[in-house]
């Protein structure tokens, strides 16, 4: 039994020596491990931002591409959820057509006309409208 104990003690000593050496080697890589974790975290964060970002351009493209050439948008404001437009056109029909296009395109959920008037000086219809994106 004493011999067996001596033998296992020797084995443990040699394992301890190996362990100390491994720990020293692993510790020498601590900075590398730290920077690798940081890079990984940064890449994950970047990917998360990319996947979550909402794009304004399809909304803007929809509004502008569906606007007839005879309609001149003087002022417009767009957010990711809504838009407001102040535009002038030759007659009321062009605006009816415009609203119809907006609502049937699957991008806009609602439109409300805030104001409409005929500019007697220019002979053009001026419409102030707001809408919400789906």
């Amino acid at each position: 039994m004493i011999i067996l104990n001596l033998l296992t003690t020797q084995i443990i000593k040699s394992l301890k020596v190996k362990q100390d050496s491994l720990i020293r080697q692993v510790q020498s890589y601590s900075e590398i491990e730290k920077s690798a974790k940081y890079v990984d975290k940064r890449v994950s964060y970047y990917k998360k931002i990319l996947s979550q970002r909402e794009s304004m351009s399809p909304r803007l493209d929809f509004i502008l591409s569906n606007t007839d050439e005879s309609i001149y948008i003087k002022d417009a404001r767009y957010s990711l959820s809504s838009f407001s437009i102040f535009a002038e056109g030759p007659n009321a029909y062009t605006f009816t057509n415009l609203i119809s296009k907006y609502l049937s395109g699957g991008v806009v959920s609602e439109i409300s006309i805030k104001g409409a008037r005929l500019n007697t000086r220019t002979g053009m219809f001026e419409v102030d409208m707001e809408g919400r994106f789906k």
Binding site: D75, A76, Y78
Partner: peptide
């Protein structure tokens, strides 16, 4: 460089 346009005002 991730850029999100939150609000846009277009005027002539």
């Amino acid at each position: 460089r991730v850029t999100e346009i939150q609000d846009l005002k277009v005027s002539q």
